[in-house]
Design a protein around this nucleic acid. Structure first.
Lengths: 136, 136
DNA sequence: CTGTATCCTTCACGATACTG
DNA sequence: CAGTATCGTGAAGGATACAG
């Protein structure tokens, strides 16, 4: 879609190709913010797991291998703040809290899916590339 | 595929919908690794910029606002190792090095595009959600 | 059961200086 | 021009204990 190409200028050693068009829709700042929002250690995992349906705190914790209570709480709070999931407290003893993806969160998950698919499809290719790179 | 179900115990007064489908293709480990690969501070930005065509070191540095030489070098080295871009040294004085996305890197960029699109489309919605969350 | 509150460690990153 | 080398910092995250 982009890549209108700059490579034709290679004959001139000093030519720095001008950027023909924007790489991303916006200019980096918003993207960084968005990546940070879900680029932390656990957000994507939590979103992926919640895709299967709502879960309560303990179930969520059990399904995210290795997460600490601290990080689980922080993660879901952030996601709730951004409107990606809802946190519902059922007044009972003992307390019960359920987390569920919002439509917004579900749509985000769908965009991730392409990425995860890519990672799955090309995992071998990547590891092979690493091996070649390391062997020199 | 996973989420082999945990919610079976709340069958009584409050039915929790069973997971309709799998969360992610693989079990988290591979996903984590992949997210780490591009979830750092600069990789996605570099990939997005290189989508417009090959660039030499200095041009790349100029187009990634705020990146240090150290991080630029580290980032492109990692991406090269994973086979996402190529690094071509033209023997000349002064030296000239060009970085270019591989087809693999280009396909990764396409999956990012959906994500960036999502972020752009829903940025207002997210900020509104945050405002509501913070106001209580 | 669903969280907080601390403490502590690691490491990603930035700044700066230097080099082939 | 295209990098290394080195040092310092802050923030992210883990471990553990405690609480409503």
């Amino acid at each position: 879609m982009f890549a209108s190409n700059t490579g034709d200028t290679h004959g001139d050693p000093t030519t720095v190709p001008p950027h023909p068009c924007a790489a991303w829709p916006d200019n980096g700042a918003g993207i960084r913010e968005t990546i940070d929002r879900v680029g932390d250690k656990w957000s994507v995992l939590v979103i992926g797991i919640l895709a299967a349906g709502p879960l309560r705190y303990s179930a969520l914790r059990d399904q995210v291998p290795g997460i600490s209570q601290r990080m689980l709480t922080l993660t879901v709070r952030h996601l709730e703040r951004d409107g990606l999931l809802t946190r519902t407290v059922y007044p009972a003893v003992p307390p019960r809290v359920e987390y569920e993806l919002t439509p917004l969160g579900e749509r985000l998950r769908e965009t991730f899916y392409a990425f995860v698919q890519w990672a799955t499809d090309h995992n071998d290719e990547i590891e092979e590339s690493r091996r070649r790179y390391d062997a020199r």
